[in-house]
Design a protein around this nucleic acid. Structure first.
Lengths: 407, 407
DNA sequence: ACTATTTCGTCATGGCCGTTTACAAATTAG
DNA sequence: CTAATTTGTAAACGGCCATGACGAAATAGT
C-alpha cells in the first residue's frame, strides 16, 4: 500500500550531493569567485552586498581564496569612489593561479591556448595544415606537443594548468572523452582520453558547443537563451537554455544540419532527404555557386560575393533561405531570445542574413526572433574550450585548490 | 583596468539566494520529502542513507515535517524486513495535509481535481460543454465555482489547498498568469490572475506543458529527456530536458504545430507555409478524411479507422508522416531519449505510429529515437496541473508550512 | 529459552559556519 | 578640526549537521 506514486527524480531540489555545511562553504566560495570575476575589482563589502552574505562572512571566504592563490588584493580601492567612508581594498581574480588550456582540432589546423582566471589569453599556438583523413594518433601526438609548449610558456609566468578542453568538429559522447563521429576527420569512436596525457582533467566537446559557450560567456549582450549556429563543413548549433548548454541524451543535440528542410529533397549522407546541409552546407553552396572545393573556401565565397558574382550571391541567398526554414522550426520549438550566427557563417552573414531574416519573419506570427552575428570571429570554439576550464575553477574553487595549492 | 571580462551569469553556482544555514535546512527538508514521496514508506534510517545525512539529522528533520503535518508515522515497519535488527518506524507522506488543485480549461469541457501529497486523486469535477468563443469572465466564474466545490469536498477529509494550477489550450506568458493567445477559445492577453480568487497561489500554463510534466512525474519508465507531443486542436509539444520543462524566453517553447514541414505548402494562420498543423492538425486531418468537424472528433476518427475506412486511414497515415518529418527536426535539435505521444494523438496512435516511426527511422543515421504512447489518457494535463502544486510543496516544505500550519 | 548480534531512534557533545554586535581605521563633508 | 560614513576585523552567539554512546527491539544461533 501507498506505493511510490511519484517517481524518483534525481535532480531533486538543488543538487544530489548531501547538503552539508562544507558544501555550503564551497558554494559560497564559488559565489565570491564568480562575483569578483564578473564585476571586476570589488571590495569585500561590495561582494558581501552582492551575494547577500555579511561582510564578516565574506572576509573569511576571501582570506581562504587569497591563501589558495585564486584571488589577489590590489590595495586601496582608488577608482570612482564617490561615497564618504573608508575606501575598501580592491579584490581581483588572480592572474598567477590556475589557467585553462583550450585546444581545437580543426579540419585545416590545430590550435592551443591558455587563458587565466581573468579571461586574458596568456599563450597561443597554431599549426596550419590539414588533418583530413589523418589517423587520430599522430594528430593527438602533435596536439600534445603544442599543449606542452603552451603549458611550459605560461608556467614561466606562474600559471599552472587546471585542465584541458578540446574542441573537435564532430559528435562527442556524453562521457566528454569519446569522439563518436567526425566525418571531416574520418574519425569514429575514438577515445581521446586514452591518447592525451592523463595529468590534466580532460573535457572533449563539439566545436559548435564550445562556440556557443564562448558566445554566452564573452559575447556582447548575448542573452541566456539563444541558438548559436556555426558551420565549419557541416552545420552545427549550440543550444543554450537558461544559461546552460543543451547536450541531449547522447550528447548529440544541436544537429541543425540534418533538420529536414524539404522532405523530398536530395538524399543526404545521414539517410534522410532534403536536410539543411543539402542546401546550406559548405559543399552544397560551393556547388551551387559553381566553385570547386579547395583551401579557404569561406574566404573565396566572401570574396566573390563582394565582387558581385551573381552565382555566388544567389547560392548564398538560397542557403540563407534554407537556414531560415530550419531555424523557424528551431525557434518554434525552443523560443530562444535570439539566434546568433558564428563560425564561417559570420563571415558570410552579409549575404545570408537578408533572406534568412525575411524567411524567419514571414513564417512567424508576431515579432520574429532577432538574428545577430557573433563578434568572436573564428576563434570562438578555442576560447570557449579554454574558458570551459576557467569556469570549472570558478564554479568550485575549493575543488581545484586541493589539487593546486602545491601546483 | 581588469574590466569585467566574464559576463555576470545570474544563475551562478546553485541558486541566487544567499547560501545560508536556513537555506540548507530548507533544502534538506525538501530532500526528505522527495525521498519519502518517491520511495514509499521508509524508515528514518533508510531516508538518511539515501540522502547522505546521518540518522540524527534526519530525525530532527522528520520531527519538524511531522509537526507541520506533511509527514506521517505509520508505526513499526512490517513489510519485507529481511535484516536482523530492530525494525524502523515507517514514514509516509501525509494524506491529510496540503492538496494540489488542478484545473483544465478545455475547448469542450472544464475540469477540476484535487491531489494529495501521496499523489492520490481525492476529488474531481467535470463539466461538459463547449467554451469555444465564450468570453473569459463567465468561464472563469464557472471554473471558480468548481474549484470551490472541490476545495470544500476535500476539506471534509482534512485537506487544505496549497495552490491552484490551471491548464489552458493556448500560449501562456512567463508570468504564469496571462493567456497570450488561445485561438480555440478566442482569448488573447487575458490575465487569469485577476479573474480567479486571490486566496490561492496561482500557476497558469499550456496544457501541453502540464501534459509533459504529468508524463515525467507519473509515466511508467519515462526518461528525464523527452519530447511529449499532444494535440487538442493545435499541435503542441512539451520539451523536457534533464527533468526540467523547457519554457523558452517568452514561454512559447514547444510550438511543434508551426514547424515547417514543406516550406512551400499551404498557408497557415501563423503566417507561414506548410506548417505541421496543415498536415497533422485536427482540422486538416478531418478534411483529408472527408469528415465534417463536430463533437468528439477524435472518437469519430478512431472509430472510422477501426472500421477500416480507407480515407480516414490514409489521412492518418499522412499525418503520421508529417509528424515524422517535424519530429526528425526536433530529435536532431534536442537528442531526446524518447518521443511520447499523448492527448488526442494517443488514441489515434495505432494508425499514426507506423508511418511516423518509419519516417523518423529513415531520416536518422544510427538508431532512431524511440516513439512511445502515453498511458495517462486524456487526463494528463489535469493531473500534471494538480501535481505541479504538489511538487511545489515537496520542493519547499518549509515555505508552505509557514502558511499552512493553521490552514 | 537464552544470549549475542544487528539495526533503529535518540541524546549529548563538538565543530563548522554565517550572523550579530562592537570597534578601530580611513576617508569625506562642512 | 569635527561629525558622519563606510570598511574590515574580532568576539560572542546561534543554528545545524556529525560523532559517539546508549537503550530499545527484533533476529540468529545455541
Amino acid at each position: 500500500m501507498t506505493a511510490p506514486l511519484h517517481k524518483a527524480h534525481p535532480a531533486g531540489p538543488g543538487r544530489a550531493l548531501p547538503d552539508t555545511q562544507q558544501g555550503m562553504r564551497r558554494r559560497n566560495l564559488a559565489r565570491v569567485m564568480h562575483t569578483v570575476s564578473a564585476e571586476g575589482p570589488l571590495s569585500r563589502a561590495a561582494v558581501a552586498s552582492r551575494i547577500g552574505l555579511t561582510r564578516a562572512a565574506v572576509s573569511t571566504l576571501v582570506d581562504e581564496l587569497i591563501r589558495c592563490g585564486l584571488l589577489e588584493e590590489l590595495g586601496p580601492e582608488r577608482p570612482g569612489r564617490v561615497g564618504r567612508g573608508r575606501p575598501g581594498s580592491a579584490l581581483a581574480v588572480s592572474g598567477h593561479g590556475p589557467a585553462g588550456i583550450g585546444a581545437e582540432i580543426g579540419v585545416d589546423h590545430l590550435a592551443v591556448c591558455a587563458v587565466d582566471l581573468r579571461g586574458e589569453i596568456r599563450a597561443r599556438v597554431v599549426r596550419q595544415g590539414t588533418n583530413r583523413d589523418r589517423s587520430p594518433e599522430p594528430v593527438i601526438e602533435e596536439l600534445t606537443g603544442l599543449v606542452r609548449r603552451v603549458v611550459a610558456e605560461v608556467a614561466r609566468e606562474g600559471l599552472w594548468p587546471a585542465g584541458l578542453a578540446v574542441a573537435v568538429p564532430g559528435l562527442v559522447a556524453r562521457d566528454a572523452r569519446t569522439v563518436v563521429r567526425a566525418p571531416n576527420l574520418g574519425w569514429h569512436d575514438t577515445d581521446l582520453g586514452s591518447l592525451l596525457p592523463a595529468e590534466l582533467p580532460l573535457t572533449v566537446d563539439n566545436e559548435a558547443n564550445f562556440g556557443a559557450l564562448a558566445e554566452l560567456w564573452l559575447g556582447e549582450g548575448t542573452p541566456r537563451d539563444f541558438v548559436h549556429v556555426s558551420a565549419e563543413i557541416g552545420i552545427g548549433a549550440g543550444v543554450v537554455v537558461d544559461g546552460r548548454l543543451l547536450r541531449g541524451t547522447r550528447g548529440f543535440a544541436g544537429e541543425l544540419g540534418h533538420v529536414p528542410v524539404r522532405p523530398d529533397g536530395p538524399e543526404c549522407a545521414c539517410g534522410g532527404r532534403g536536410c539543411l546541409e543539402q542546401y546550406a552546407g559548405e559543399e552544397a553552396v560551393l556547388r551551387a555557386a559553381g566553385l570547386a572545393p579547395g583551401e579557404d573556401r569561406v574566404g573565396l565565397l566572401a570574396g566573390r560575393a563582394t565582387e558581385g558574382d551573381e552565382d555566388v550571391r544567389r547560392a548564398l541567398r538560397d542557403a540563407g533561405e534554407a537556414l531560415g526554414v530550419a531555424l523557424t522550426g528551431a525557434v518554434n520549438l525552443l523560443d530562444p531570445e535570439s539566434v546568433v550566427l558564428g563560425g564561417a557563417l559570420a563571415g558570410l552573414a552579409p549575404w545570408l542574413l537578408p533572406s534568412l531574416r525575411s524567411e524567419l519573419a514571414r513564417r512567424t506570427a508576431g515579432p520574429a526572433c532577432p538574428v545577430s552575428v557573433s563578434g568572436l570571429g573564428p576563434e570562438g570554439p578555442l576560447l570557449g574550450a579554454a574558458h570551459w576550464v576557467v569556469r570549472g575553477v570558478l564554479d568550485d574553487p575549493a575543488g581545484v585548490a586541493e589539487v593546486g595549492v602545491r601546483g
